[in-house]
Amino acid sequence: MENPQDLIKKAKDALPNVTPTPPDLKKESSVHDLKSRLEWGEPALTILDTRPREAFNNSHILGAMDFPMDELVELSKNNFETQRDIYVYGANDAETAEAATKLRQAGFQSVAEIKGGLDAWKAIAAPTEGISDSRTEPPSHAYNVAENVAFHAKTQEIDFKK
């Protein structure tokens, strides 16, 4: 019979030596892609909301920056390196695609369109902030980690079945 320490060493040696890495930026990203990246804890990304300021002030993805469409390129050039990972969303998918195109044409290399935008983000009960959000009761699972993880897994299953 082999020594238990030798068995453990053999088992460890048989496993691949893989370093976990955050999810890659995709040209068209789901809200789950963004949420996974944020949960990874990677600070090297920026979320831009291109809707009018009033809509932004009312509600937006937690941590998103207000870069209205008419100021998007100028503000981006003044604030970010062209290699910066940028997630962008607008009032709808067409506006989101337009914003991403503008950024790419301005030389930004890593731009992801958040499909479904704020509505999709809210549908998975991801964190938001704004005037209306401060007046809205959070969902029942908001303060229970186990329920929140289960809810997130359930919403991912629904997305993948489409």
Score class of each variant (00 low, 15 high):
Q5H: 15
K9N: 13
A14K: 08
A14P: 10
L25T: 08
K26Y: 09
E28W: 04
S29R: 00
S29Q: 00
K35F: 15
S36Q: 15
R37E: 07
E42L: 14
P43V: 06
I47A: 00
L48Q: 01
L48T: 05
L48W: 05
D49Y: 03
T50V: 13
R51A: 07
R51V: 06
E54I: 07
E54K: 11
N58W: 06
H60K: 14
G63C: 02
F67R: 00
E71I: 04
L72H: 06
L72K: 07
E74F: 06
S76T: 05
F80D: 03
Q83R: 14
D85H: 12
Y89A: 09
A91N: 11
A91E: 11
N92H: 03
T96W: 09
T101Y: 07
L103M: 07
R104L: 01
Q105Y: 10
A112R: 06
G116K: 07
A123R: 04
I124C: 03
A125V: 02
A125I: 02
T128G: 03
T128Y: 00
T128I: 03
I131R: 15
I131E: 15
D133H: 02
S134N: 13
R135V: 07
P138G: 10
N144H: 01
V145D: 14
N148L: 14
V149S: 11
A150S: 11
K154T: 12
K154V: 07
T155G: 01
T155K: 13
Q156W: 12
I158G: 05
K161F: 10
